[in-house]
Amino acid sequence: MTVGLYLPGGSWLHRTPAGPKLLGLLLAITGVLLTSVPAGIAAELAVTAALYPAARVPWRILWQHTRVLLPFLVLVAGFQLLTAGWERAVVIGGQLLVSVLLAGLVTVTTRVSAMLALFEKLARPLDRVGVSSQRIALTLALTMRCIPMVAQAWQASSDAYRARGLRRGSWRVVVPVIVRLLRSAESLGDAITARGVDDDGVRRG
């Protein structure tokens, strides 16, 4: 499972710089959040789904992004259905789904290095007040790497559990997932130390 990881390609969206791409994402999500009718949400969802093949991103990536969100989406839409009616449920659930799919599309078509360079540039004025823009970029890099790492660890532990012929039980894979994440965190820390990054998130030398 590679949700949230960069997918190499040469499409128009891959070639779009990170700055305009993230600005477009911000404007698009703002428009989605301002939509208040089911028909509008349906149209936005159709356009978003069409952007994946237009950017030469496989349909399986679209499904992966949707599948990860489904349990939470069901809970949110179900709550809205009970408290505010089906139209509100469709709007809220649709807004959430479209926003996640748009963000996922930007993520898989944008190199992490390009995003970090942009974030560091935007945070550079903070250097004047003693906040390291490099440290902010490092924090963002670790966050972006660890989110899909959790999903990968969960999927790997679930697959190993089923491969042993055991019935799937979500609570039984918690410990293996934690162990995998601890090992990954240790390896990540060793890699950061090996590259000469100090406690302030700044490269030495």
Rank of each mutant, 00 (worst) to 15 (best):
R164S: 08
E44R: 12
V174P: 01
A103M: 04
S11M: 06
L101S: 02
T109S: 03
G94W: 01
V90L: 14
A103G: 15
S158F: 12
L73D: 02
V112Y: 06
S158C: 14
A43W: 11
A49G: 01
A151T: 11
I92C: 03
Q95H: 09
T66H: 10
G104V: 00
T2A: 09
L181P: 04
A163D: 10
M149N: 04
A50F: 09
L96N: 00
W154M: 14
G165L: 08
T83D: 02
P53T: 03
L97A: 05
R167A: 12
A156N: 06
R167P: 03
V47P: 05
R172M: 12
A18D: 07
V177H: 01
L118F: 06
S184R: 13
L22T: 09
A153T: 06
Q152T: 09
G19L: 14
S36I: 13
S184H: 13
L7G: 02
P58Y: 05
R135P: 10
K121G: 15
W154H: 11
V112Q: 14
G93Q: 04
D159F: 06
A18V: 09
R167E: 10
S170A: 14
M115D: 04
P148R: 04
V106D: 01
R128S: 11
V175C: 02
H14E: 00
Q64P: 00
L22I: 06
L181G: 02
R164G: 10
T16Y: 08
D159R: 13
L96D: 01
V37D: 12
S132W: 09
G94H: 03
G19P: 02
V112S: 12
A55R: 00
A163E: 08
G165H: 03
L22D: 02
P176K: 03
S99I: 02
Q64H: 08
V37M: 07
L69Q: 03
M1I: 01
F79C: 11
T16K: 10
L96T: 05
S113K: 13
R167N: 09
I41M: 06
I192G: 08
T107D: 01
A18H: 04
L138Y: 07
V106H: 03
R204T: 12
V68Q: 08
L126E: 01
V68G: 10
I61K: 12
V112E: 13
V100G: 01
W154S: 11
A89P: 10
A43K: 09
V100I: 10
G165C: 07
T109K: 02
V112H: 12
A46Q: 07
A55Y: 01
L182N: 06
T143C: 10
L118Y: 06
V106R: 00
V98I: 11
A117K: 13
D200W: 15
R56T: 07
T16M: 15
V108I: 00
R172C: 04
A137T: 05
R60W: 11
V37W: 09
I136L: 15
F72N: 08
